[in-house]
Design a protein around this nucleic acid. Sequence first.
DNA 1: CATTGTTTCTAGACATTGTCAACCTGTACT
DNA 2: AGTACAGGTTGACAATGTCTAGAAACAATG
Lengths: 195, 195
Amino acid sequence: MDVRRAVLDAAIEIIATDGPDQVSMREVARRAGVSHQAPYHHFTDRAGIFAAISEEGFRVFTAEFRSALDGASDSLTDCLSAYVRFALAHKGHFKVMFRSDICGVTTHEATREAADAAYLALLDLAALAGNAPAGVDAVVLPVWLWSQAHGLATLLVDGPLAAKLPPELQIETLVDEVARFAAERLSAPQQATKP
Amino acid sequence: MDVRRAVLDAAIEIIATDGPDQVSMREVARRAGVSHQAPYHHFTDRAGIFAAISEEGFRVFTAEFRSALDGASDSLTDCLSAYVRFALAHKGHFKVMFRSDICGVTTHEATREAADAAYLALLDLAALAGNAPAGVDAVVLPVWLWSQAHGLATLLVDGPLAAKLPPELQIETLVDEVARFAAERLSAPQQATKP
DNA sequence: CATTGTTTCTAGACATTGTCAACCTGTACT
DNA sequence: AGTACAGGTTGACAATGTCTAGAAACAATG
């Protein structure tokens, strides 16, 4: 049996339902069916588990995001949508990846590299989406794109938005609509100034 | 001495620097200079402290947001900026307010009311910003606005974005630029269709 | 086969945590 | 004076993260 994998999966499941705070070394060991010390042979400590989950999350995210980026149809809409879909499909990973206190980006080299790769993918989208108008700092466009995707993802994963929505509304439908709406808003003024 | 206030302030300070996980009943009691049980005479338990911080945060936020909303100049830009500025100025509160597992919105009545009041202020901004074009669900606009402001705030407070920015860039300048950029994107197509 | 070393696990111990219970102590009110 | 009570204390308990020390499996080597 792969204890390392079992420990990770147990932790990811706990995080997705009850949040990272509820992850305890002894509980994941219990769920994996091993002694309370077994996880320490695969991870240095509690933070090590979070760092591993975070790294795995960034790798999967980068793959899915780049897939949307390289797709045939509207890349901007697809990428925004892919960002939020990833968060919804991998809540356990997502909740750790963007919690600076536990994600391990500053402490674990491999995690930092995976996070950097994800950020580069985002910059590629910004470059593809076009340049910002004159007079606006170059960072504004990527920051704006990232903020939109991340904001929607966070609000949906962490609950406050999902609770406010009309119950008959499909979350995936909303995500696609918002992504399309945002993509239109980005490209509209550029088309207007061109001709 | 106001033990309740001292406990809250100690907790808020710990949250702002080390995150909510590091808040311990005994540590806040120690910082407040009282015994490890004194906080229990002001809060039912650890969750009660978080709920109180969250409630206080929502109240302050609503006041500041409404002030920007009622301001003389560009409300949209001001509100987006106010949202992010609140998060940066009250990191301790902000980190709790949008963590569904600890914010206490579902468990503490007063906190839920304060959060609802904040949400209503946000809807007011969406109404003022104008209606969505035909064919787009009415929730898309508020969700989009909220996502942008919340995304930027979260990325800055939780660290991943601030670490990526060029060091000479003033964060407040960036916030204002992004807010103005976003506001332009929302109003531009409407102005184009009007005349 | 015996020995040696490494990897993977278990068991025991320790300080620290959240929280319950029981006990003081002043202040307000009858 | 007596009494109720808000606010404070100390002590106890189980659970947690993590340290140390061992045990069991297994490969490589003599």
